[in-house]
Simulated assay, not measured.
Amino acid sequence: MALIDTPATLPGPAPAAPVGRRAEPASRTTPAAPERRATDHGEQRSSRSEKVNRLRAGVLGANDGIVSVAGLAVGVAGATTDTRWLLIAGLASLIAGALSMAMGEYVSVSTQRDTDRALIARTREQLATQPEAEHDHLVDALTETGIPPDVVESVADSLERHDALGAHTRFRHNVEDDAVVSPWGAAVTSLISFAIGGVIPLVAILAAPPVLRLPATMAAVVAALALLGMASATLGQANARRATLRTIVGGLLAILVTYGIGAALGVAMA
């Protein structure tokens, strides 16, 4: 009897519980994780494009506000010493310039956005009607980026399986659907930055006595442009010295030219 009962006491197959525990991690792995990572990457790319767009609009608006208002105010100061005319001309330049800058940014960015969206729509339609020809175009575009010819077909196939529209718009046209920026952000940023930039030379020229208006305005413009150049270089991670020197030289040249024209007109009208 002992010999018969012995096999029943031998170790049997592993219990089911460990098998279930080993399979449990696989059940926790959801196929949506790559999609979430792709979505997060697209959101980051869109946010970065929006920030770059606003930085560009802010720098351009502030620079234009400083130079435009200073140039007009200095030009008027070269023709007359009447503070009232300086104030009227400066405020008119400030208001009109800010509104014009905002509208220009809105129209410009809207046009670019509409162009990008129309291109994306055409690409989507062409992918549906002539996928073979579009695939060849993608292969050519990828080949131009330096991908070896022996693997470029497999790379193109992989990209199209993952996101055909995104692959074609990104690598063929350098346009991404999630990176199309809003024109309102650029318009508001330009409006505010132009107004802030234009106030600086206007206050300087109104506060200084007539004999010191030109040097006071030039000093205020140089300081404002230097700060703007350093700020834009820091935010854009560019060369601060080059950006600062470029903005200062360009602004001073514009102001000197308008002052010379204003002085000439003042002498001619005297």
Rank of each mutant, 00 (worst) to 15 (best):
A167S: 07
Y259P: 08
E50Q: 08
I66V: 08
E176P: 05
T30A: 10
P131W: 04
L206M: 07
E144S: 14
M269E: 13
M101L: 08
N174Y: 14
G12S: 05
G20H: 15
D64R: 00
R37V: 05
A195Y: 04
R117D: 09
T83C: 06
H162A: 11
A118L: 13
R22K: 08
G12A: 03
G20D: 15
E132I: 09
T80L: 00
P210T: 03
G65N: 04
I95L: 07
R28N: 12
T123N: 10
R28C: 08
L86M: 02
I255A: 07
A38V: 02
A226T: 05
P11V: 05
N53P: 01
G262H: 07
A57N: 00
A187R: 07
T189I: 00
V67H: 05
A73Y: 00
D136E: 15
A263K: 12
L138C: 04
Q44C: 02
R84D: 13
E160C: 15
A38N: 03
L214H: 00
E153Q: 14
S108N: 06
H135F: 09
V257K: 14
V222E: 03
A118W: 13
H135N: 09
N174S: 10
M103Q: 15
Q126Y: 09
A216L: 03
E43Y: 06
G65F: 01
S49A: 11
Q130I: 03
G75M: 01
P183E: 01
R170C: 13
L214V: 09
L245F: 15
